[in-house]
Design a protein around this nucleic acid. Sequence first.
DNA 1: GCCGTTTTCGGCCCGACTGTTTTCAGTCG
Length: 586
Amino acid sequence: MENLEISKVLSQVADLLEVQGANPFRVRAYRNAARFVDSYATPLRKLVADDADLTELPSIGKEMASHIGELVETGKLGALDELTAQIPRTLIDVMELPGVGPKKAKKLWQDLSVETVEELEKAAKQGAVAALSGFGEKSQQKILSGIDQFRQHRSRFKISEADQLIAPLLEYLGECKELQRLEVAGSYRRRCETVGDIDLLAIASKAQPVMDRFTSYPQLDRVEMSGETRGRIALRSGLEVDLRILPRKSYGAAMVYFSGSKEHNIRLRKRAIERGLRLSEYGVFEIDPETVGQDSHERDPWAGKWVAGREEKDVYRSVELPWIAPELREDRGEIEAAAKDDLPDLIELSDLRGDLQMHSTWSDGKNSIEEMLEGCAAKGYEYFALTDHSKALAMTGGLDAAKLREQWKEIEEVQSRHPEIRLLRSQEVDILADGSLDLEDEMLELLDLVVVSVHSRFDLPAAEQTKRIVQALQHPQVDILAHPTGRIINRRPPYEFDLDDVFHCAKQHNVALELNAHPDRLDLKDAHLIRARELGLRIVISTDAHRVQHLDLMSYGVDQARRAWLTKTDVLNTLPLDGFLQAFRP
DNA sequence: GCCGTTTTCGGCCCGACTGTTTTCAGTCG
């Protein structure tokens, strides 16, 4: 059983415990464990096989360790079976609906025998939901429209989609004269690969006109809520946007708070408490002994002496930390690193000196070799690799040896006209189902760079898929494994194979792993990159451009690299040409 | 259920908005 699956089971246990009304801290313990497991790059099944002590891992105690062991060995969890014997598992879907949490799901189930979203829809249409105490006509309507949304848009938005959707909204809000400052926070600012919603943060001379303008955005589908300082709208695409308006002196605290992640914030707040401080979106306050023990509901949010909050760095300084880049704020060790003044010097877009995967009209690209070259030169690159497909991908016009030799003639011509940038002769060579490469050895030897990847037979059993890739990496001419897991975000899961085995093989044979920067792929993903870096693997970032404009996608790759703590020295295509070539063909 | 340079017991982040409430619970982020 893979980490992702283990994580899902633990998270289901948390959901059901919550319906059951269990101790909320116990629920949180399951959620913390689920979250940790999901982000942990080493397969836990391996640690179990090695008889490692899982309780050494964060958020994993005796109970979780035993659960994980049971899941790895039997594929099932007795504790979950016991829960589902009492509470229908399908209530978890019901709780996904807006306005329905554990308490309401339980009530719907106990009073109306609602177990599934379908049954809830039926009950709501009959008016039975509105008749329940604690519910009403509005809750019933909200549930019904929530069910529609649930069916229409189950997946999160890719970061590139979010970019497109919010650009016009930002421009629209920017025309409001009361607006003084507007920024996107949340997972978008942390550059997560997908976002669930968008958090906007504003400072305004007067809040109301800004909120009014927000809730009358022409492109919106509906206004979900609108208060004095907080509003929420849904765009027609289904993307939900939150706007918070805060006083200027709270700007930094609010940026920290609304950028998250939640886990990072919790750590910061605990650190504040340890120092006799309270941290909220309004600022950092000295804790007033009078209010200790008071429920947050009844306490004045401005209680106590305000000590910081104007800028993010002030907030971090108040808890004795340097400013932490948003991409790192995932509680993956950044607080500890910051405390030791040991934060990584993260890679930046301007560090890249070349792009190592792109296609031209010779296969399935839309621009000529010369146009791609000019695009790369315009970016200030020193080199780039032209990697048209190999012949197995007939539908893309993949090149066989003869056509490749023809292409080389054109490359030579183009290169002679453009001494400003070095065009590396390369190919994206298919790894065939048996692990052999889709180009003859003597041709491979003539390439400057050999990029290999899987484009077929995604359905092979995991052991066979692993063997196939590992065999390809053992070929002495192979330099880079492109989009190693094959996933397409929101469309296709990674193929089944043992990434850890592939990592170790790549390490042994000096093969670099690609971070494919295309926002549909982002492959390797952040958690995998963290693992790759730990193992000391070589990494490159490439756009996989199929037209000149796609060369701009590099920034999405850099974002993920930063989320994975990568520095300039971890990424080979930050090297100048000589050093780069030396790294591959010493 | 997890965790511990105060602790192996007693903590565990903070606040806004909504809807259905007569003073607040539930949900959400």
